[in-house]
Design a protein around this nucleic acid. Structure first.
Lengths: 139, 139
DNA sequence: CAATAGTTTAGAACAATTATAATGTAGAAA
DNA sequence: TTTCTACATTATAATTGTTCTAAACTATTG
């Protein structure tokens, strides 16, 4: 929930030039109290709804990837025909309904800390992500 | 670790006709003590190494999908440019090294049961999958 | 053996994503 | 300000993984 000058500051601080496309995308992604999930296509649709001058698809891809690299977005690890991104970069998990292709956050507090009792030599754990697949409960 | 007549039986029992293509794919996937991960492309390569007559790409896709549906294979939920499958259908989890695109099994016994303290009305949990992303430990 | 329902196949089609290369622009230096 | 340059954007082409199609093939049943 920032205004444009704050996005500009944020972008500059992370070494990204504050172009009008990036600022627009910041607005679409972060000008809301609620975090949300999206695919590139859904983002393009959202952008076109709030703006008259459109942003090219390539730029949307580029920007989402730089934002991900800077830690402003997370990619959600599900197998799908397209990638899902999350504006909620806090540590949390997901329910996924494969039938409806519906993703729902699971608050970190609702998942007991996952203990991994093994490790790989020379590697450090970067993240632990839990994906809970759900289906209709027809019982 | 079965011989062909056992694959034939297995296929028939699950309502799949035991064609020579499916039997060949069974051999490549299941004639080993160790379970493993693969992409469709890697599977095609493996097949071509042990067999002279090739199986069309469409058939490999079809077969992997039917085997998945029958529960002989699992798909591993990671974001990648291609899908990963696992011949280990037991309940277990994965380490994933994004840098090297390397997947490693985590034995179920090495992960404390994941407790989810929330639920979605009308939905039932189908699976809980833990993906542990790792990176080089340069400490 | 004949009928038929399920399979395989090559290749086309498709969809998501990435690459290309020309044009545009932000920010720094003069 | 003007100029310069490195970074960004763009339209479009190319690429890649996957699915579709429809014709040929084959395992199974009667």
């Amino acid at each position: 929930m920032l205004n444009n000058s704050q996005y500009i500051k944020k972008l500059r601080n992370s070494g990204l030039r504050p172009t009008k496309q990036r600022i627009k995308i910041c607005e679409v992604l972060f000008n809301t109290d609620k975090t949300f999930h999206f695919t590139i296509n859904e983002l393009v649709t959202r952008i076109s709804k709030v703006s008259d001058d459109k942003i090219s698809l390539a730029t949307v891809y580029n920007t989402v990837h730089s934002f991900k690299k800077k830690g402003y977005l997370k990619e959600i690890p599900i197998n799908s025909d397209q990638s899902y991104f999350d504006t909620n970069t806090s540590h949390h998990h997901h329910f996924y309904d494969e039938g409806q292709k519906n993703l729902i956050d699971i608050d970190d507090a609702d998942v007991e800390p996952v203990k991994i009792n093994t490790k790989i030599p020379g590697k450090r754990i970067k993240s632990v992500e839990v994906l809970v697949k759900v289906e209709d409960d027809k019982s």
